[in-house]
């Protein structure tokens, strides 16, 4: 399920005093099955960009192709697009509304026209996928813990069986435990189902650990696009954008500054440990 973004511009509140050029000439190609990290400072345009991908915001100019079909074309069904490209918003637990967990997760599939049985089957599958056991099916979503609520909300999008899953800062406000649980589940999902995952985040550590491609946005433009270790080589530029490289990059840099002959490309603990071990023994 490839997505192709061609020359997309988005201008917010055009020709008023509040005009903001939120996206500038975005060109991206998102092939099947990638795990992508979309990084940027607050206001960099990353949330605006992902809302374009399922048609919630219409580009001021430019084209978006989903599987080669123009989503702004005449016969294109937005409903179909929204079923294929699932978008989990920031603090998604704020959209829960049903009396029990299962009915809430059924909301998406039912909107797509699934029968009650089919919707429940999908909902149950989605709930198990995010680690919510059967015992919770009939609980009120408002009595769950913060991390559980969030997982139910993510299941609400998963139950639509999207082929592309976009998560806008899925770990915001969670404690380390909740954060690890959610990210691990997303990673497993991505591997097992082979779906494309776009993770919008500003945590470099999370991104370094999970994704295979990183897109960095700043002031409405794509500034870097590549594998994490390549992108992290631009530590200075990232800092200028109000971002930072992972802590490990700084550590390796500190070592190098002290005259150590180490490879500074390490971004995760394991990589750093390997590089240091090699250097000490070498």
């Amino acid at each position: 399920m490839s997505i192709k973004i061609k020359d997309v511009n988005y201008i917010y509140a055009e020709s008023t005093a509040y005009e903001i050029h939120a996206l500038k000439d975005i060109n991206l190609e998102i092939p099947d099955g990638q795990f992508i990290g979309l990084i940027g400072h607050t206001g960099s345009g990353k949330s605006t960009l992902v809302q374009h991908l399922n048609g919630l915001i219409k580009a001021t100019s430019g084209r978006i192709y989903f599987n080669g079909r123009d989503i702004y074309g005449e016969n294109f069904s937005m409903r179909e697009l929204r079923s294929k490209v699932g978008l989990v918003f920031q603090y998604p637990e704020h959209q829960l509304f049903e009396v029990d967990v299962l009915s809430d997760v059924c909301f998406g599939p039912k909107n797509l026209g699934a029968s009650k049985e089919e919707a429940e089957r999908r909902a149950k599958e989605a709930l198990r996928m995010v680690g919510m056991g059967e015992e919770y099916d009939k609980s009120s979503p408002f009595e769950l813990s913060g991390g559980q609520k969030r997982r139910v909300a993510i299941a609400g999008v998963l139950a639509m069986e999207p082929e592309v899953l976009i998560l806008d800062e899925p770990t915001a406000g969670l404690d380390p435990r909740g954060r690890d649980e959610i990210l691990d589940q997303i990673e497993r999902l991505q591997k097992e189902r082979g779906i494309t995952v776009i993770l919008v985040s500003h945590s470099m550590e999370d991104v370094a650990r999970y994704v295979d491609r990183m897109i960095v946005m700043n002031q409405g433009q794509v500034r870097f696009d590549g594998v994490p270790r390549e992108v992290f080589r631009h530590g200075k530029e990232l800092e200028e954008m109000g971002l930072a490289a992972p802590q490990m990059t700084y550590l390796m840099q500190a070592l190098k500054d002290k005259g150590a002959d180490v490879d500074t490309d390490a971004t995760t603990i394991e990589e750093a440990a390997d590089a240091i071990e090699q250097w000490l023994k070498g």
């Binding site: 404690d175 435990r177 992972p246 490990m248 550590l251 603990i269 440990a273 240091i276 071990e277």
Partner: peptide
């Protein structure tokens, strides 16, 4: 299930490797 500073984690990992 709490985090530890990255430098501490790395030091710990290196200790485990006998450094």
């Amino acid at each position: 299930r709490l985090d530890v500073p990255q430098a501490t984690l790395l030091a710990y990992e290196l200790q485990k490797r006998g450094i």
